[in-house]
Design a binder for these strands. Structure first.
Length: 272
DNA sequence: CCCGGAACCTGAAGGC
DNA sequence: TGCCTTCAGGTTCCGG
């Protein structure tokens, strides 16, 4: 499922195909994918616009348009953006198709229909409340400490909260907690300064590693050219049900935190 | 404001 | 073999 490294990879690999191109057609086989405005208005306002910039904020993709509006895309759990041309058959579960002026076609494939398309004038209406970008210089361990201060929710839940840190989801939260040897159920505000420093470093490392491996192909994640990422092969605990800790050999445990599958080593990540 | 749980959605996997 | 139930999780909404 796409988290920061997956969305970053999609942005990088899609960029040469769409930057500077003009949208000439929009098909919506399932109109429910458009959150705002209405599907018909979305179509008419998007057609004719040139894509002048593509960026990422958290797990959102942001396309700047020549009209000064923004096309904001969220892939949620099962969404993928795939490129093709006029000869391409739409992949199964295609929910939206964008035709560009050079014949390139971008397919939004999304089996579970969680994905969202928005066309907005003010991008901050969507991404304005997000927490800091973990790979930018202003994300320091002091900033992390301040955002966890006095929070009583489990650290795993806080790491996955986009208002605390943008871009970290279920998989990379588990990896960062394992790397920093912190139990997922520890209250966020109970972490020591040293633990927060380790966690801060671990978040940056697991995300950078994920990007270096072009994302983790768990579930439906697929790169725009149809190939898979390899980040999941580097995972130490995430989704490694029934396996043992690569550090100490203890069988990994799986618990539910906020109904989310959470993998950890009960020996390396002690409860206190 | 903070926390936890339900809802959205459907393919895959497991149980009987 | 096949039907039924459960699981997967990012975000949003809602109640306490």
């Amino acid at each position: 499922m796409p988290e920061l490294p997956e969305v970053e990879t999609i942005k990088n690999e899609l960029s040469p195909y769409i930057l500077g191109r003009t949208v000439t057609g929009v098909d919506l086989p399932w109109e429910g994918i458009v959150r705002q405005p209405s599907a018909s208005e979305f179509r008419s306002r998007l057609i004719g616009q040139k894509i002048t910039k593509i960026s990422r904020r958290g797990k959102y993709l942001i396309l700047n348009l020549s009209s000064s509006e923004f096309l904001i895309i969220h892939l949620k759990m099962s969404g993928a953006l795939l490129f093709g041309n006029e000869a391409s058959e739409p992949p199964k579960y295609t929910r939206a198709t964008f035709r560009l002026d050079d014949g390139t076609i971008i397919f939004f494939r999304d089996p579970r229909k969680f994905g969202v398309l928005r066309l907005v004038e003010d991008k901050n209406s969507i991404v304005g409340e997000l927490g800091p970008e973990p790979l930018e210089a202003n994300f320091t361990h002091e900033v992390l400490a301040q955002r966890l201060h006095k929070r009583t929710a489990p650290i795993k839940a806080l790491l996955s909260d986009q208002k605390v840190i943008a871009g970290v989801g279920n998989m990379y939260a588990d990896e960062a907690l394992f790397a920093s040897k912190i139990h997922p159920l520890r209250a966020g505000g109970s972490l020591t300064k040293d633990e927060i420093k380790r966690l801060h470093q671990a978040i940056i490392e697991v995300l950078k590693s994920g990007i270096g491996n072009k994302g983790a192909s768990i579930e439906n994640y697929i790169r725009p050219d149809g190939t898979l990422g390899t980040a999941h092969t580097q995972f130490k605990v995430a989704h490694r049900r029934g396996e043992t800790c690569p550090r100490c050999g203890t069988p990994l445990e799986r618990i539910a935190v906020r109904h989310r599958g959470t993998y950890f080593c009960p020996k390396c990540q002690r409860e206190r």
